[in-house]
Design a protein around this nucleic acid. Structure first.
Lengths: 228, 228, 228, 228
DNA sequence: GATGAATGAGCTTTCATTCAT
DNA sequence: CATGAATGAAAGCTCATTCAT
């Protein structure tokens, strides 16, 4: 468990353009950070896994902290893009939510390393908590905005702080299930998204009554009660 | 940011019984860990904040890791007890949830340091993730069981894994709002609990329709739609 | 292997006279030192094995160094006495040697702990090397004197330094076999003594007769007796 | 007594190749270990004496224990080679012994530090006793084998264990005189070798002729030669 | 006489970071 | 461009030793 094996088996002495080297190092860093955690990870190992000498790492990505933040940003950007690519703002709320959640869990399922770096590590370590909070804030704002527009479309209005808190709750539920997914390698990301959709969309009271939400349903969803 | 100031300004040279010193050290440790994170925190600082020499810390609480786990357990126990003291299993589901959430947010609001140690720090640091996972599991199981009994009381049934995931989502939402609460010192714990109750109990769809959940409502809750 | 079990199973709170306590502590110290070595041994463990609190150890036997020296002296005294009790200076040289060796190996065989403290530990550790050297010196002098008297009784004489070196060689051979004995728990001390006697005496006997070996002599060497 | 002065008075900031630095560190370590003993020696001092920073010591030679073993092995190898270079197995037994002893004492006389590390320190400290025992074992086996072949050449035979013990005795005598030599800086190694040869050879010669000493024999002992 | 409580001091070990080549 | 060599600084942990009771 001590050291991860080098990413590129044959260490290349070719003088590669800076951009490629940077990506190699970032890949290595994400791997190492996600396996060992920020503090336990050593620059030595990252350099070795990247197949590069330590001074190169410093030359290209800077301090250990800066390197970690670079990882954080790259993974966060990828995640946001994966979601943004898929959500169609012209659709109804439930469709947006559903497609967003699917994209989210699909991403986490495919990049469990990245997720680990992103959320599990960063959440507690002070220098990064702020960075991460800002990222989460962006998501929360997007969701709160979605809710707001949908509510206004119904001719009603919800207090800003209530919107924010609701969005936070949804994000928290999502992160929690992402963790759950990361710990259950065999679980299906799509099904997980469906389950969260059920809870989030219908609420406990409905579930209690036996209602079930299913993709493809028009909005408002057809619940068993409505169907009756 | 370097060092937290000593808890008791005048360092006491009195020979105190072991039990008291242990609590002093635990208090200091929770404070320091929650401010600096596990790795960044130094035993030196913990000892200093506790107003005790380092060897005492080791003699009474053991290794840094053991000390952290001791913090973890103490805070977790307090949290669980605070909730258990308040939840009445003979009540309906929504009442149990509501009282549980209130107790939860009240605790977090009153012990922000403890919460930070418990969830923010431990989640990512490998030796403790397992310990923490086990604790969360206990809560999840309790909630899942609550749901299960309520559903069966209605004469229906929900697949085990769906129960588990729902409970996970709820716990995640709760943790997320707890973080939010910890970051908003002026926010009211009770209101936060109410907001989560709304989202969790009613679900997004209902909120969209303008439904509002309020404490004291009988089960099933009276929604604006029912009222209409 | 961490801690040796207490010598007296039931820790006695009786106020015992100082002398007895001192012996208890010395016994414990010899045990602990011989198992862990001087530096690795801890005063805590010695106190615990002795069934006494640490301040008692300090009160009675002083510093760790002083305690070790006390062990050293007690064991050395016992060894010397065991030998002196048995050697009859009125007998011939070989009888003295033989009885002395028998007593020596018998002692080592019976007090392997003591031997370990005495020689293996003390030899290298600077504060004790001197102490030990002095003890060895006393034995060497006794042996050298025995040889000297025997030679003079034959009407001849051997240079002082040669006597000393011979005695040193004998002592070294004895210590070496004592180590060997300590490492072979099933070996018979008496037989070991016999074997050393063979080597030592048959050599010594020739010296006694005035034989001299010189480099370049063919094999078998021409002794003065053969020459006569 | 605290600190040995640096080997090279002017600390060199030149970047030296690893091999050279390793030797510098080993030299320093042997010096420091032999003066202070394993436990009392500090890595700080070793690094300082080597004219190198502590992390270098760890990078090149590893743990304190590993460093000590490296010293042990280097010194032992040197000693064995010094002897092996000189002993001619085609010669007679006494010539082999004599040349071996001369080489041995010459080495010890020239490398008193090395000797101290090798035998005085390692003998008692548990992690190394085994290592050292194995080394001594190799020497003992060589000597026992020499004896065995010589005895068989005479058409006789000696029991294995007797050979082993005799060899042990010889080695012990040699070590003892080596210590004596290390403590008498003005003594001549060659003369010391001669003195041991006298004791050892005149004894060995008798054994070679089949003489046997038995307890109770009158003085001077009746040898088979006398009996003839 | 006897002890639990308490500490100063020190040691090994590790790591992020930077020169000199 | 690329690296092996080198280090300052700090952290975890232990232990002999001593008060105050």
């Amino acid at each position: 468990m001590r050291s991860l094996t080098r990413v590129s088996t044959t260490r290349t002495f070719k003088r590669l353009p800076r951009e490629i080297r940077e990506q190699q190092v970032l890949d290595a860093a994400v791997r190492v950070f996600s396996h060992h955690g920020f503090h336990t990870a050593s620059m030595d190992e990252i350099a070795e896994v990247a197949g590069v000498s330590k001074p190169m790492v410093y030359a290209y990505l800077g301090t250990k902290e800066e390197l970690f933040i670079a990882c954080l940003r790259r993974e966060a950007t990828r995640l946001m893009e994966a979601i943004a690519d898929v959500v169609d703002p012209t659709l109804g709320l439930s469709d947006q939510l559903w497609s967003g959640l699917r994209a989210f869990f699909a991403f986490v399922g495919a990049h469990r390393d990245g997720w680990a770096v992103l959320y599990r590590q960063a959440r507690g370590q002070e220098p990064f908590a702020a960075e991460l909070a800002a990222m989460r804030r962006r998501i929360v704002d997007v969701i709160a905005d979605m809710l707001d527009r949908a509510v206004r479309a119904e001719g009603r209005q919800i207090h800003g702080i209530d919107l924010e808190v609701s969005a936070y709750a949804l994000v928290g539920a999502g992160e929690s299930l992402a963790d759950w997914l990361a710990d259950h390698p065999d679980a299906d990301p799509d099904k997980t998204a469906g389950r969260l959709m059920n809870v989030a969309w219908l609420g406990a009271a409905q579930l209690l009554r036996g209602d079930v939400w299913a993709p493809g349903g028009s909005e408002p969803p057809v619940t068993s009660r409505d169907a009756a």
